[in-house]
Design a protein around this nucleic acid. Structure first.
Lengths: 138, 138
DNA sequence: CTTTTAAATAATAATGATTATTGCTTATTT
DNA sequence: AAATAAGCAATAATCATTATTATTTAAAAG
């Protein structure tokens, strides 16, 4: 059985071409896509798909823990197939989002802070990315 | 000169009753208010104020670094007069937002991650707060 | 203290991301 | 192959935030 099909079935998700299409786009190297960006991409293979369908598929995947929704840009959500805990950096100049892996993150090693039970942690870094920094220094 | 007036003047902000009112509400112990919540509170003393004015005052204060905007709840921004770096916890049960101060935060001590220049860091923790946890354990 | 004028406010409309609705279509079950 | 439960497309609705504009007001100057 194909890998994508296998994963979706494992999570009790009914297989449809639209769902496979969205999943494939998410798997692509280009990460942190907005719903709108996914919509634009999937319309190449599914010209009649609607944006609402993209949202509903993303919501389904989120509930099944197949993706991570991040809101580093206040205006819109981005979606990421990486579901292990990691953080994000948003460049204020080029708007690119980078993954950030903090190795010895004290906050992550604890299950609690101030007596509160932690289920999830999102770290959002804002600044100027290395590429833009280099360009300014020319 | 009154304290609030002094602070606003120091930041080259023209004094208006509406601005003083919003500032007073932000100073109140009840932190992390949404624009809507601030609007509801200030209408007691300024019944004709409009929500757009509240937003414009908040934007002004943000640009002058008099407040911090957080987006721990995806749906709406919250505003906080604490401008020093600290993090936040959102209880999934009661929706209360708590301040989190991480003492030895490795991420904060650095000015860079992966070669990117950090200007700002927002840490959002999600889970069950101590109060709700205690209630469940009765 | 009045006049001036540049900025702030109120009222309202517009925007834009996300969600809800509904009738038709498709995937699984019988 | 028929039945049925779920998914989809199209579209409308929602809701936070932003833009617009005419009116009002705060600060500066006379």
């Amino acid at each position: 059985m194909e890998k994508r099909v296998e994963i979706l079935k494992k999570h009790n998700i009914r297989i449809t071409p639209q769902r496979l299409g969205v999943y494939e786009i998410l798997l692509d190297k280009n990460k942190h896509l907005t719903a709108e960006a996914i919509y634009r991409k999937i319309r190449v293979s599914f010209p009649t798909i609607s944006l609402a369908t993209v949202y509903s598929i993303l919501e389904l995947y989120y509930k099944k823990h197949l993706l991570n929704e991040i809101r580093i840009d206040f205006d819109k959500s981005c979606f990421d197939i990486r579901t292990d805990t990691h953080h994000h950096f948003l460049c204020k100049q080029c708007a690119e989002i980078y993954d950030i892996d903090l190795h010895p993150c004290s906050a992550l090693n604890n299950k609690e802070v101030d007596g509160h039970l932690i289920h999830e942690l999102q770290g959002y870094f804002y600044g100027i990315c290395s590429k833009c920094k280099d360009k300014s220094n020319l």
